[in-house]
């Protein structure tokens, strides 16, 4: 079996270096690129993202990446993992600084966290999650596993079946989504120490099985 090649999509607003470093640490071949041909021949894609929705989505469109990703993800069914904003981009639309259309891969919207007063916004720090679908993201996770969150908006999905894990912060918030070959996490596995490493290992192992 040839080694998997993971491409981190570079569209200007991601902490690409952090994610690449963690994957290299686990021994994978990683490339950070926005080149269409390079993205096409990767075995798996990671859509990172730190930032505001409108800037991110317009960068994706400006680079012609939206069309390419629609083709690769929806037609060719290439595995993709969205992280933080990268996951939120998969929604139908977002209400962050106005109304912005997303990639619409998983039905739902991204809305501001409206919590009761004792819960501060942004939601920052380590919080326990509640996985509802163990495979592929949480197969190595303990029953009480925590990850590092840092967000002010959250992904409200239309279909509960698209949710892979919840996190409770004033109410149950989407912590991870999955639908066929599409996965996304609200937290930052690349910054969650061993729990994050385990998540990447589980996820990439699951892809290797089918590769």
């Amino acid at each position: 079996m040839t080694k998997l090649l993971i491409n981190i999509i570079d569209y200007g607003v991601g902490n690409t270096h952090s994610i690449a470093h963690v994957l290299k640490y686990l021994g994978y071949s990683v490339r950070i690129s926005d080149n269409h041909d390079e993205i096409k021949n990767a075995d798996a894609l990671i859509l990172p993202g730190v930032g505001a929705f409108d800037v991110a989505v317009s960068n994706l469109r400006a680079n012609g990446l939206e069309e390419l990703l629609n083709e690769l993800v929806l037609v060719e069914k290439k595995p993709i993992l969205g992280i933080c904003l990268g996951m939120q981009l998969m929604a139908t639309y977002s209400e962050e600084y106005g109304y912005h259309k997303g990639l619409d891969w998983i039905k739902g919207c991204v809305v501001k966290l409206e919590t009761s007063p004792e819960f501060l916004v942004p939601h920052v720090g380590w919080n326990n999650i509640l996985p509802v679908q163990k495979e592929p993201l949480f197969s190595r996770a303990d029953s009480e596993t925590n990850f590092y969150f840092d967000h002010s908006y959250y992904f409200k999905t239309d279909e509960p079946k698209d949710i892979a894990a919840y996190v409770n912060y004033s109410f149950d918030i989407t912590a991870a989504v999955q639908k066929d070959n599409i996965c996304g996490v609200q937290f930052h596995p690349e910054k969650s120490q061993n729990n994050g490493l385990k998540l990447f290992r589980s996820y990439i192992n699951s892809i290797e099985q089918y590769a």
Partner: peptide, 8 residues
């Protein structure tokens, strides 16, 4: 904050 979100 507008470009990277307030959490950044």
């Amino acid at each position: 904050a507008k470009k990277y979100g307030d959490q950044c």
